[in-house]
Design a protein around this nucleic acid. Structure first.
Lengths: 203, 203
DNA sequence: ATATTTGTTAACCATTTGGTTAAATCGTAT
DNA sequence: ATACGATTTAACCAAATGGTTAACAAATAT
């Protein structure tokens, strides 16, 4: 009665599913493709995960799980606002760089499925939005930074951190540069973005 | 032999197709849905436009057509770098605001179809990228602005202008604000973004 | 009026897709 | 060996989808 099932098949499915889902999106992904990529029979997908939806949810939750807690822990740390923002930006870019397909995926699913997807997205944990706006508002009151609209600031940070990943295929193609070079540019942005943001709120 | 065909049916198809394509994406869109929304028989879609691909291309080209020429004309105008950037940002936001579904759509299709889509995308006209980087490099040589990586600067501009539209469903939901309020924020960004960008390159 | 082109429809088709099933195979405890 | 549960497979199914066809209606030309 040991539950120590051999993970290899289940694991193969999960990895194949991750690739296909993030590449083709929830709708574009084909169960057959996942099965092929995992080197197993299509029926196995339904044996281990009841349906396409369930499989998708498993994949997605796993990929997203780390992000919010990381952001929260940074916001709750005992650093200055500037230090927090610096770490926030660079670490956010860092994490997304590990799964560069996620931004486009989330943006398009959220835009397509709206409510149902967003409900899934925040089900487990909400983004530490209050923590962020709170931090900014406090810093403004303490006159440590210029008075800015916290949401606009957040929008700036997210835009500068996330968009380059979402637009990678287009920009790389338009600028005619290699994947390596593009990744180097993103690496550089771990410094550029915090500078830009901090400069915009520094008194 | 007058080519003055009654546009009503064709027009109905185009408008329905635009809605459905931009809402569901190229793959998610169903020909039947387009036909229903247009209030005509499905076969008419193939009568007027040979295939789903052709119909899609028509829609897409029409939606994109204005953008690049507008950017080019701004870049070629005889304003200062700062003025150009200011107009560039605000006008870009302005244009995208008229079709807020476009960013997610382009990002996801480019990420999904890669080559085929990008080929279609630049077929008619290439983005005035050289004009932009040229302008920046010149300004740097003339010591009018700080030395910056032109592509990084462009990435910043595009991020700040486009991302808020792509992330609207998520951010609006997360921040718990109304569509009206969100649109007001974007309106405000026509000033915020140029300020932020110009501040980052001003000596 | 009548022929001919243009526009429109319902029914149909081949293919694809997520999902099911029943039989087979494998591991293992008895 | 053999029984038994977990795992795996091939064949199958119903629904959906892009696309076609043939017949029908409306407009236009002769």
């Amino acid at each position: 009665m040991v539950k120590d099932k051999d993970l290899s098949t289940e694991q193969k499915i999960l990895e194949a599913a991750k690739e296909v889902f993030f590449d083709k999106g929830m709708h574009g992904a084909r169960m057959q493709d996942i099965a092929d990529k995992a080197g197993i029979n299509k029926a196995m997908l339904h044996y281990y995960f009841r349906s396409k939806d369930k499989l998708f949810e498993t994949i997605f939750i796993d990929a997203t799980n780390h992000l919010f807690p990381m952001l929260s822990s940074i916001l709750e740390s005992d650093k200055t606002v500037f230090e927090k923002i610096e770490v926030l930006c660079s670490e956010y870019i860092n994490q997304v760089a590990k799964m560069p397909y996620l931004p486009v995926f989330i943006l398009s699913e959220a835009s397509r499925q709206q409510e149902p997807f967003l409900k899934k997205l925040w089900k487990r944990q909400k983004p530490p939005l209050k923590a962020f706006t709170g931090m900014i508002e406090t810093a403004i009151k303490q006159k440590k930074i210029k008075p800015v609209h916290p949401l606009q600031l957040l929008m700036n940070i997210l835009s500068l951190c996330i968009f380059p990943f979402a637009a990678q295929p287009i920009l790389q193609h338009a600028a005619g540069i290699s994947k390596k070079d593009y990744e180097a540019m993103i690496e550089e942005r771990k410094k550029i973005v915090p500078q830009l943001i901090i400069q915009s709120i520094k008194k």
